[in-house]
C-alpha cells in the first residue's frame, strides 16, 4: 500500500481575498439555511410522531414548542424555509437563463434577504392572530 504521496500544491486564493458581494453572501446563506432545514426536519418528525402517538406525547411536544427555546427554533426554521424558498426561486430564474445582469442579480439577492425576513414575520403574525381559530 505504498501509495503515491500527495504532492503539496499551492491552493487557489479563497474567501479571504475576495470583496464581499451580496450574491456571494446570499449563496452562503442559501447553503446555511438548507443545512438548518435538514436538521429542522427533526421538529417535523417529532410533531407528526407525537400526534400519531397520542395526547400525552403531543402535550410533551406542545410544551416544548411553546417554550421560548422551542419557539425560537420554530422561528429560525420558518426563516430558513422562507429564505431557502426565495433563494430557490432565484435559482430557477438563473436556470431559465435569465437574471444574470449584475444589477438584477444584486436586486434578487437583496429581495431574498429582505423577503425572507418579511415572509417569516408575516407568517408568525398570521399565526398569532389566528390563534385558536380552528
Amino acid at each position: 500500500m505504498a501509495d503515491t504521496q500527495p504532492v503539496s500544491r499551492p491552493l487557489s486564493p479563497h474567501l479571504q481575498i475576495y470583496r464581499r458581494t451580496m450574491t456571494m453572501m446570499m449563496s452562503i446563506a442559501h447553503r446555511i439555511s438548507g443545512a438548518a432545514l435538514y436538521i429542522g426536519t427533526l421538529i417535523l418528525a417529532w410533531w407528526l410522531l407525537s400526534v400519531a402517538a397520542g395526547p400525552n406525547a403531543y402535550s410533551l411536544f406542545e410544551s416544548f414548542i411553546s417554550w421560548w427555546v422551542g419557539k425560537l427554533l420554530l422561528f429560525v426554521f420558518t426563516w430558513a424555509l422562507m429564505h431557502h424558498m426565495l433563494g430557490g426561486i432565484r435559482h430557477f430564474i438563473w436556470d431559465m437563463g435569465k437574471g444574470f445582469s449584475l444589477g438584477f442579480a444584486n436586486f434578487m439577492a437583496w429581495m431574498t434577504l429582505v423577503g425572507g425576513f418579511v415572509l417569516t414575520i408575516f407568517v408568525w403574525w398570521i399565526g398569532y392572530s389566528m390563534m385558536g381559530a380552528m
Binding site: G127, M130, A133
Partner: peptide
C-alpha cells in the same frame, strides 16, 4: 425544489391554521 415550493406553502398554511388548536 419545484415541488417543495408548493408543498412548503401547504405545510406553513397548515401549521399556521393549527396554531393554538
Amino acid at each position: 425544489a419545484v415541488e417543495n415550493v408548493f408543498l412548503a406553502i401547504f405545510l406553513i398554511a397548515s401549521v399556521v391554521a393549527l396554531t393554538g388548536s
